[in-house]
Amino acid sequence: MEKAQEIIFAGFGGQGILSMGQTLAYSAMIENKEVSWMPSYGPEMRGGTANCIVIVSKSKISSPIVSKFDSAIVLNQPSLDKFEHAVKPGGLIIYEESSIITPPKRTDIECIGIPAMKEAQKLDKKQVANMIILGAFLKKRPIVKIENILSALKKVLPERHHHLIPLNEQALEVGRKFVQ
C-alpha cells in the first residue's frame, strides 16, 4: 500500500491558501484517489491566518486531522514558526522566499524557498503566486498530473475567472523551474 500524503498549506488569508489546497484535492479526486480537505475555519479574512490540511491517499483516509505532515507549504512567517516542527523527518517545506525573514533551520528535512511573489509580479498578476508555489511542490512531489490540476481549476474557479487558466498554467510552469 502506497503511503498517504499529508500536507499542510498555511499563510495569510487572501494568499489563496484554501484554494491551493482545494485545487490539489480536486485534481487528486479526478485521478480517483481518496482525498480530504480540512480548513481552519476561524473568523479568517484577508490578513488573518489561514490553513488547510489536504490528505491524498490510494486507500480510505482515516483521520482528516493530523498533527505531523509529509509536506508543509508556508506563505508567511507565523505559519513557518508554527509548522516547521510538525514536518515528519525526511519531509519537505516549500516556502515563499520574500514572506519569510527567518528561513527554516531543520536539517533532517528538505527546505526550498521559492521567490513566488517576485515571479508572479513578472507575470503581472500577483494572485498567481500560490500556483507558482504549487507548481514547485508538484515538481518535488508529483502527487497529481499537471493536466489534472488544470481540470481541477475549471471546477474550483468561478466561470468568470476561467480566462485566467492559461495564466495559472504558466505560473505552475514557472514554479517547476525552481526545483531540480
Binding site: Q22, A25, M29, V35, S36, W37, Y41, I61
Partner: peptide, 10 residues
C-alpha cells in the same frame, strides 16, 4: 460537528 460541516471530501 463543525469540522464535518466545513471539510471537503469525495
Amino acid at each position: 460537528d463543525g469540522a464535518l460541516g466545513q471539510m471537503m471530501e469525495k
